[in-house]
Design a protein around this nucleic acid. Structure first.
Length: 742
DNA sequence: CGAAAGGCTCTTTTT
DNA sequence: GAGCCTTTCG
């Protein structure tokens, strides 16, 4: 099979450019994945490069898996030695292998966001910082920013430009110490420590450099400076670095991805070949044009010339509904209509939204109508309490220094080891400079055999906190249990260890005794199924691999594209995917673009890119849906249409909106094309001047006679709640055409 | 020590 | 609406 045959000239150029640095600027739908896989196939089959010399960094594990599967077909086998993975998983492997040079114990655990929160709170307490004054989440974010620039706590404090920097520096210092004591790394550490390892140990770096003669990076626009440095380190010897990206799809700056990476690549590698992939194979002409016109509003960008030979297609539909419930109902009924035609299946359709909270109303509607859907990352599986609990037990077994896990399991299920006891234990451990687990074991020993404690070696034991005999018994029992489990973990198969843990810890009984215990236990069993996948590895490797797997999974990784169901997904997660039909819901100022971005031009541009990413996922048909009224954090708010809608040329959209007419509740059409800031002209002939109050009798053309229950002003309008015979309706005064009677 | 209840504060995106 | 924290009571 000729690897080059099915490529266009630009794609072919990208595939054949195998010597030296290459920058591929790939528009959406331009065959980027195809280029990467064909390039690898070309290296192996045509050039004769051994698969073990090729490293490919992808954005998600899913992308890695898919490319590997594709390559398996292209080069018929021989893909086992290829290295594929995300930055984080690749770094974790390197650090388990060679982290010892940086004093990193290979049994380290990886702390996720929740773990970070737990430990940063403790760090702030130790550093005497008030969590009310400085939000722990903000501190985490600042620490992450620092790590993404390879900054140490010292750096932050020294160059401290503000008091906040100093606060961050102090928290960061203690935070890092706690991580070290727990033998844990956070996500940023995985990257930073790897770069540090290579900086300090050129001989280790040299090994990786000679292995990876060809380095490829996908989604390069979303890398941070540390990731870029890592790539430069690895590729320094052979300089065969190929990065692929699209600045217009950069949507992770809040995670400290740095767009400058892609912009400065040509400066760092002046001999880089630059290939532009501008032909779109995915979308209709109208969809592509819609996407282009929106993204071209951004100032911080280079113009591109995207084109497609696809059909013109249909204009995008703009639908206005009254509430988010109605928005969801519209989506489901439209889905049913589309699928009813027989040409489309549910799996061809995706609903995309800015925030996870928006999925709720959609889910409810899908359930009510009995339409199958798959929610990418609903209540995230790995964030569920019962799943985290069991993982914490296993994590503690693998690494007894993991203090976050210890705190989680020490009284779950309740054993009578409350906050007081835990605090004293922690304080005592800190005084002695040993881990809490060691402290626990000493309590166990001293109570069981007090005469065996060598008080000259450990005088602290005498002055330690005096626990009641009851407390000592419970602590001892817990300590003995953990010693037993840790002992058994060395010989038991992972799955047997799993069963032993939930049994012996009393966790199974505890969970099943809960209100929704059955459901929670099912989740534990689902986790068990995941553990089963590691059956072939020997016990200690299996545990490590399992724990790493569950921490570094991303939600899209588990998206089953074959399943016959509509996909509900955030715009961020949708990057890299495509669907024949896309609904973009919540097209409102405040949602997309998000409130948080309204007053910052560069954040606003990122919101626009997010919108662009959503639009360019669609192949055939695109819907923009907005609700006039939406519940946000428990309160109902009125919103204006997204300013991005006004950036669409008129001929690319159809606003023919018949939805909701029968209920006469449709929100006003307030688009004022190309003048986004102009408020709605109030339509003539509508009654906004009747004076209504609770208790008044009114008549509605459709619902008949009713009694006003409540009135409240809303922007330039009033919301009237009326009890009609049999049902209570919320109406907008200007649209309901109510008449006062009696 | 722990369960229950009441009050508080958030607006986002995730490896 | 929900998750977190504090308070109160058993």
């Amino acid at each position: 099979m000729d690897i080059l045959a099915e490529l266009n000239p630009a794609q072919r150029q990208a595939v054949e450019a195998i010597d030296g640095p290459v920058l591929i600027l790939a528009g959406p739908g331009s065959g980027k994945t195809r280029v990467i896989t064909h390039r690898i196939a070309y290296l192996i089959k045509t050039v004769g490069v051994s698969p073990r010399h090729i490293l490919t960094v992808t954005f998600t594990n899913k992308a890695a898996k898919e490319m590997k599967a594709r390559l398996y077909q292209l080069v018929s086998g021989s893909v086992a030695d290829l290295t594929f993975g995300t930055f984080h998983s690749i770094c974790a492997k390197i650090l388990r292998q060679d982290g010892k040079a940086l004093n990193i114990d290979p049994r380290f655990v990886i702390y996720d966001r929740d773990d970070q929160l737990a430990i940063v709170k403790r760090a702030m307490q130790d550093a005497e910082l008030d969590p009310k004054q400085y939000a722990p989440a903000a501190i985490i974010s600042a620490i992450s920013a620092a790590k993404s620039q390879m900054q140490t706590p010292d750096n932050i404090i020294k160059q401290g430009r503000s008091y906040f920097d100093e606060v961050v520096g102090r928290a960061y210092e203690r935070y890092q110490k706690l991580l070290e004591e727990s033998n844990a790394l956070d996500f940023d550490d995985l990257l930073m420590k790897t770069v540090l390892l290579f900086r300090k140990n050129p001989e280790i770096l040299a090994r990786y450099q000679s292995r990876y003669r060809h380095v490829m990076v996908d989604e390069f626009q979303d890398t941070n400076v540390v990731q870029y440095e890592l790539i430069k380190q690895l590729g320094a010897k052979y300089r065969n670095i190929c990065v692929v990206g699209d600045p217009d799809q950069s949507i992770y700056s809040w995670r400290y991805a740095d767009l400058r990476n892609i912009l400065s690549f040509e400066k760092d590698f002046p001999d880089a070949k630059v290939v532009l992939l501008e032909e779109n194979y995915r979308s209709t002409k109208m969809i592509l044009e819609a996407a282009s016109s929106i993204i071209s509003v951004n100032k911080q960008r280079k113009a591109k010339n995207l084109f497609t030979q696809n059909e013109p297609g249909e204009p995008a539909a703009i639908i206005e509904t009254y509430t988010e419930q109605e928005e969801a109902r519209f989506v489901v009924s439209e889905v049913e209509k589309l699928v009813g035609g027989g040409e489309l299946s549910l799996r061809d359709i995706a609903v995309m939204y800015r925030t996870n909270a928006q999925s709720r109303a959609l889910e409810e509607a899908f359930i009510r109508y009995g339409t199958a859907y798959k929610l990418v990352a609903g209540t995230r599986f790995y964030e569920r309490r019962e799943v985290k609990d069991v993982i914490a037990y296993l994590r503690f077994i693998q690494n007894p220094n993991d203090s976050v896990s210890l705190m989680r399991i020490i009284n779950t299920p309740q054993r009578g080891i409350g906050d007081q006891t835990q605090n004293r234990l922690a304080a005592w451990a800190k005084d002695m400079g040993i881990s809490q687990y060691d402290t626990l074991q000493r309590i166990g020993k001293s109570s069981a055999h007090p005469e065996h404690v060598d008080k000259s070696v450990h005088p602290e034991l005498v002055e330690g906190p005096h626990f009641s005999p009851q407390t000592i018994r419970t602590l001892t029992a817990f300590s003995n249990l953990m010693v037993e489990l840790i002992g058994r973990s060395k010989e038991l198969k992972l799955i047997d260890l799993f069963d032993l843990v939930v049994e012996r810890s009393g966790y199974k009984k505890y969970i099943l005794g809960e209100e929704d215990g059955k459901e929670r236990w099912d989740n534990v069993m689902e986790l068990r199924t995941v553990a089963q996948e590691y059956i072939d590895l020997d016990p200690s490797d299996a545990l490590t691999a399992f724990l790493e797997g569950v921490t570094l999974v991303s939600d899209v990784d588990s998206l089953d594209e074959a399943a016959s169901a509509v996909t509900l997904i955030t715009l961020h997660q949708a990057k890299g995917l495509e669907f024949p039909v896309v609904f973009m819901v919540g097209m409102e100022d405040g949602i997309l673009p998000h409130f948080k971005s309204l007053d910052d031009p560069s954040q606003m541009e990122e919101e626009r890119r997010l919108c662009y990413v959503g639009i360019t996922r669609a192949k055939q048909k695109l819907y923009f849906v907005r609700a006039f009224r939406r519940n946000l954090m428990g309160r109902s708010t009125v919103s204006q249409p997204s300013r991005f809608l006004a950036e669409l040329p008129r001929h690319l959209v159809s606003t023919g909106n018949n939805w909701g007419k029968e209920e006469n509740q449709t929100a006003p059409s307030i688009y004022s094309w190309n003048k986004p800031s102009t408020p709605a002209p109030s339509s003539p002939g509508r009654r906004t001047n009747i004076d209504l109050k609770a208790g008044d009798h009114v008549h509605h053309i459709q619902f008949g006679q009713g009694v006003v229950v409540n009135c409240r002003p809303v922007k330039d309008d009033s919301e009237i709640i009326v009890a009609f015979a049999g049902e209570v309706k919320k109406l907008l005064l200007s649209f309901a055409n109510l008449e006062k009677v009696g």
